[in-house]
């Protein structure tokens, strides 16, 4: 059993293509990556807005 497209290095190396595991899952990986990227921005903007509001209150005291 292997998660890659090849089981050993004994064959013709020139025939080997991608060597990362789970070949064929690239599109779902890209979708997951893009969702994570956008979610990161949203989360960080909310977090920063809350922090700035808090700092504003502290500075006003």
């Amino acid at each position: 059993m292997t998660t890659g497209d090849f089981a050993n290095w004994a064959g013709a190396i020139a025939d080997i293509g991608p060597i990362y595991p789970f070949v064929g899952m690239e599109v779902p990986l890209v979708i997951a990556g893009v969702i994570f990227w956008i979610a990161w921005h949203i989360r960080m903007i909310r977090q920063e807005s809350g922090k700035l509001e808090e700092d504003k209150q502290k500075a006003a005291r």
């Binding site: 025939d15 080997i16 293509g17 060597i19 990362y20 690239e26």
Partner: peptide, 18 residues
């Protein structure tokens, strides 16, 4: 980004030059 040459690749089977 879903191209297999956008990752570890030995060149075999790609439609591009190795």
């Amino acid at each position: 980004p879903w191209s297999d040459v956008m990752g570890a690749h030995m060149g075999g089977g790609a439609d591009l030059e190795n």
